Amino acid sequence: MNSQLKLLIFACLISFNALSQEITPAKKFWNTLQSHCGKAYEGVLELPKEDKDFGGKTLTMHVRKCSETEMKIPFFVGEDKSRTWILTYKNDRIALKHDHRHKDGTEDDVNFYGGITTNTGKSDIQVFSADAKTQQMIPGAATNVWWITIDESTFTYNLRRLGTDRVFKVVMDLKNPVKKPSAPWGWKE
Rank of each mutant, 00 (worst) to 15 (best):
S3G: 05
S3T: 14
K6A: 04
L7H: 09
F10K: 04
A11D: 06
C12A: 11
I14L: 15
N17F: 10
S20N: 11
K27I: 10
F29H: 02
F29E: 01
T32L: 00
L33S: 02
G38N: 06
K39L: 06
A40E: 01
G43T: 10
V44A: 14
L47K: 14
L47M: 08
G55R: 07
G56K: 04
K57S: 01
K57G: 12
L59W: 00
L59I: 12
M61G: 04
C66Y: 05
E68D: 13
E68C: 03
F76W: 08
V77P: 01
E79R: 10
D80K: 13
K81E: 02
W85L: 15
L87W: 10
Y89K: 14
I94P: 04
I94G: 03
L96K: 10
H100S: 12
K103G: 03
K103L: 15
G105A: 11
D108C: 10
D109T: 07
G114Y: 11
G114L: 08
T117V: 10
N119T: 03
S123I: 02
Q126S: 04
V127H: 07
T134M: 11
Q136A: 15
G140I: 00
A141L: 08
N144S: 09
V145E: 15
W146S: 09
I148R: 00
T149A: 09
I150M: 01
T154R: 07
F155Q: 09
L159F: 14
L159C: 02
T164F: 10
R166K: 14
V167Y: 11
F168D: 00
V170A: 09
D173L: 04
N176A: 12
N176R: 15
P181Y: 05
A183C: 15
P184E: 09
W187G: 02
K188R: 11
E189R: 15
E189F: 07
